[in-house]
């Protein structure tokens, strides 16, 4: 399995932010997107995950291969940690959450209401969801926000396990995860030059 992104141009709010982006990922590889705030890393990730259509270019894989984790964790505060994960496992048709709980050290918290978790614990729960999706490509947007050093190590370990199983990871992050094998792509040089949709119709897109 291979993810080939060719000539990708993406827009946010109708304004093109990045254009001509090319990269490819093979099974077992990780790619880290870097770039200043507002350059369009999130937009690229959302486009790759299939949440918005690209302006131009192709994403080689179907959206069914992608598991996306954005800035928000999608946690229901009135459900317990176990119920939250079980829901996603059922939606993605995988069923088993034990491995995900263990990977992010959530077993002691399993019966606690998610609303009673700290920000870092919530983040771990949000990342544990990636394990239960069972999908080959992890698309992660700033996955380490509010994680402490120990949890970052747990996360890096989970990503490594995913890669070792033939998975792929595409992420935007500013901190060093200790994933030395991951390639880094600076997206700043791909900044879009002129607005493609400056006409009347374009303002409604």
């Amino acid at each position: 399995m291979e993810l080939n992104v060719t000539g990708l141009s993406v827009a946010r709010g109708g304004i093109p932010v990045l254009e001509g982006l090319d990269f490819s990922l093979r099974a077992g590889e990780a790619l880290i997107l870097r770039g200043p705030n507002g350059v369009g890393k999130t937009t690229v990730l959302r486009t790759v995950a299939g949440l918005q259509p690209p302006l131009a270019g192709k994403i080689g894989l179907e959206r069914e291969a992608m598991a996306y984790a954005g800035h928000a964790d999608g946690i229901k505060t009135t459900l317990t940690v176990r119920e939250n994960l079980e829901f996603w496992a059922a939606v993605f048709g995988t069923g088993d959450i034990a491995a995900a709980l263990a990977a992010f050290d959530l077993i002691p918290l399993a019966e606690r209401a998610a609303g009673a978790l700290s920000a870092g614990q919530k983040r771990r729960l949000g990342l544990a969801r990636m394990v239960v999706t069972g999908r080959p490509v992890w698309v992660l947007d700033e996955p380490t926000v509010s994680l402490d050093a120990g949890a970052v190590a747990l996360f890096a370990q989970a990503v490594r396990a995913h890669l070792a199983g033939g998975g792929m990871a595409l992420m935007a992050t500013h901190i060093d995860l200790g994933l030395t094998e991951a390639r880094v792509l600076d997206v700043a040089p791909y900044r879009a030059k002129a607005p493609a949709h400056d006409d009347f119709d374009g303002s409604f897109l």
């Binding site: 984790a69 954005g70 928000a72 964790d73 999608g74 996603w88």
Partner: peptide, 16 residues
């Protein structure tokens, strides 16, 4: 509610 906590994005990428 699903929009605010981000679950709607995640549901949109789910196999539903």
């Amino acid at each position: 509610l699903d929009w605010e906590d981000g679950s709607l994005d995640l549901l949109a990428t789910a196999p539903l």
